[in-house]
Design a protein around this nucleic acid. Structure first.
Lengths: 417, 417
DNA sequence: TTCTTTTTTTCGAGGCTCGAAAAAAAGAGC
DNA sequence: GCTCTTTTTTTCGAGCCTCGAAAAAAAGAA
């Protein structure tokens, strides 16, 4: 089963604990870290001295006026912004965003691009991503910084092992090797992950009081995506990114889905499904590939105005999501839900039928206790999750292992004595 | 988040590794343990000497003739059968089984009882369980043994934190505090777990080559239960035992389920559902509470003989399970499946429509790669899983922590120098 | 200027794992 | 029957790591 604990792992783990405590708390003192980690003061003292010597942490003199207390004043520790940088790549329908973020989490630079993902060739799509990322990385290298990690988030089914995009609604191509190609272009380790999973990661960092160990993020957009945190761990499939909530079966042999199959939740609740139903089109009609956010807002306005086919379309969407959540809750028990994306802007129309449907399922008994939260703009969340994911990797895999110096090819001279 | 690693945890963890290696391998030598755990020979030597002194392990002289090799012969290590005992309690429809198992996993004694769970009062049910367990425990104490753990497996939704049976089809009573009551009756720690989860645990011990880190056990019986292993961990809900595959929604507002709701998978695939459909009864008809295994076998025989309503009933059942699995696979990716229980005896009737349904879902592309395995008799599996669960607890929580002596109230005198 | 109070560092004790070397326990060869 | 090989197991010292106690540091309070 699991591998034994080696003696050296001890230090590595405790270093990771300290770094994580600083990243979470922002500017904690050594005493606070000792409290939150449970390690002794002497251990924290030793580890933080090492981390400071390695250029990973810095002592940030009296930022907040935590003054007016007796005794030796606390010295706040912070992440050294120049210890490293990471790059995030967010690819969604007709949109590419590449950003550089420093070790403390501050945005350094950003490049956004409208592209036509649906018609681009496989090579053009990979090539464009690789070119932009490469340019950013080289700029940062020229500025004397070292980029230690690239995190890519993309809509679709990803495979973390092979770091491929297995299937995606934003492009007709399958099995795209973004991981290998970006790595080849830059020489920097790359992860490729599902965008909704990154939303879940971001929510946890943003609002840990609400999104702690168990919660669900559902992206209501052209398709229906999900990111789920269970027992504090991101839920993924056994091989792929998994969590394809949108392709759970709502009605066997039902409406035609964009994935080519029938009766998926998405075929009732995705943008194209709402548009199709609002227009009284046949459920067998092939899904349109792109409905603008404006169109959805427009349909929602009309649904609010009068009880016509638009309102019924949103009702059907809410019902599909409700039954889907009901089945999901049968498996994992009810949990807080965040509704993200343009569909969240119409959640007032979706929520009543959604709750009615949940009431008919195993989760129904807890219906009132289930709370929904909405966030119409998914893009900042995706980038934020991607950022934290990449930074956490640097924390745990590189800096905790004491590789701050070893990995350094940068001209940061001799920060280590 | 997670707590820091203390220095003393190191030894505890590595002791647990050694014990686990012995439990898995049966009679390994110290060298084999060093190989499988990755710890050094010196560490294994030190730890195993401690464990032998504490009476947890024993040197079992040349059991198998691994002879005819040059060099110093290996000394096989085994679990000391008399180090501890555990009790398993398996409660299912109209049936109670209590067994005592020694530390090496050998059955010591067993008591089975036909009871009428559906009509018994809450107090009678708890009281009977407690009385039988108490008697067994006292007998073992009289024999100079110490029972360190009681593991209970029961059909229904359990809560591991409160160790209650929240809801069960086998009794009309809810929130039964088996954990507290058994503990009060014996003074021994108790766990209460879902029977299907224990089936999954057992399958992993029995056939690790097939059921390793990710697989699903589905119990086809009066109800439809599921136990699932994901990434080597038993999958449970955030609060309860979770994994209520049988109550995922197959058809919204569909057939009446035993749980009072409509359209659950179980309302199409449970014994009562097959019986109801085979008899051309209405889907609104309240489910019968008990269909005998013989009746199901009889229906299966008739379904095989001619294409009548019986065959259709099994087809509908297979379809429901297939769509349910399709939705599940959308979440977790396809994985090996074990079909357990009386329904597995009719799996020849169920499999074709099941695969046809899966083909219509997201998991469909892997249909051929998904393999099913059948095991009609669930009871031995449940007890086996329960046994391994309880023994593993003793291994990890008591013996790895060096509590072998501290916990001992038994007259095993001074095995420790 | 001298107490208090609080934070941080220092120092020695006690554990743990590891690698190397030694000891133990057989079969092989003559 | 004795000595060599081979393999397993134990022993021993080195090197880390964490911890508690005590000391040092750095302020405000009196």
């Amino acid at each position: 089963m699991s591998v034994a604990i080696r003696h050296d792992d001890l230090r590595k783990r405790n270093r990771a604990m300290v770094i994580a405590a600083v990243r979470r708390a922002g500017q904690p003192s050594r005493t606070e870290i000792a409290g939150s980690t449970g390690l002794s003061h002497s251990t924290i003292s030793a580890i933080s001295a090492d981390l400071i010597a390695e250029g990973i942490l810095v002592e940030t003199k009296g930022t907040e006026a935590a003054t007016s207390k007796r005794g030796r004043p606390q010295v706040a520790l912070g992440l050294a912004a120049d210890a490293a940088e990471i790059v995030t790549v967010v690819l969604s329908l007709n949109f590419l965003s590449v950003a550089v973020v420093d070790y403390s989490g501050q945005l350094v630079s950003e490049e956004e691009r409208k592209i036509d993902t649906l018609t681009m060739s496989r090579e053009d799509l990979i090539g464009l991503c690789a070119a932009i990322v490469r340019r950013q990385v080289e700029q940062r290298r020229a500025a004397g910084r070292r980029v230690l990690r690239i995190g890519m988030a993309v809509q679709g089914i990803t495979d973390s092992a092979s770091r491929m995009l297995l299937w995606s609604p934003i492009t007709p191509h399958a099995d795209i090797e973004f991981g290998d190609r970006l790595e080849a272009a830059t020489g920097i380790p790359v992860t490729v992950e599902n965008d909704c999973n990154m939303i879940a990661v971001a929510l946890r960092w943003r609002r840990p009081e609400r999104y702690r160990n168990d919660f669900i993020a559902i992206l209501l957009s052209h398709g229906i995506g999900m990111g789920m945190m269970l027992k504090g761990e991101l839920f993924t499939g056994t091989q792929s990114s998994g969590g394809e909530f949108g392709h759970m079966i709502h009605r066997p042999d039902g409406a035609l889905c964009r994935c080519g199959r029938r009766g998926c939740v998405e075929a009732y609740a995705g943008n194209y499904a709402i548009w199709r139903n609002a227009g009284l089109r046949s459920e067998d009609e092939a899904p349109l590939s792109d409905i603008s956010d404006a169109e959805i807002r427009d349909l929602a306005d009309r649904a609010r105005a009068s009880d016509g086919p638009e309102r019924e379309a949103f009702r059907v969407a809410g019902e599909a999501i409700g039954f889907g959540l009901g089945s999901l809750f049968a498996l994992i028990d009810p949990a807080p839900v965040a509704m993200v994306g343009i569909g969240a802007a119409a959640f007032d129309l979706i929520e009543p039928p959604l709750r009615e449907a949940i009431d008919k399922t195993a989760g129904g008994q807890h219906n009132k206790a289930i709370s929904f939260d909405t966030e119409p703009n998914e893009r900042p969340l995706i980038r934020e999750g991607c950022t934290m994911r990449a930074l956490t990797f640097v924390d745990e895999e590189l800096f905790a292992a004491g590789l701050a110096a070893a990995e350094s090819s940068a001209p940061q001279s001799s920060r280590i004595a």
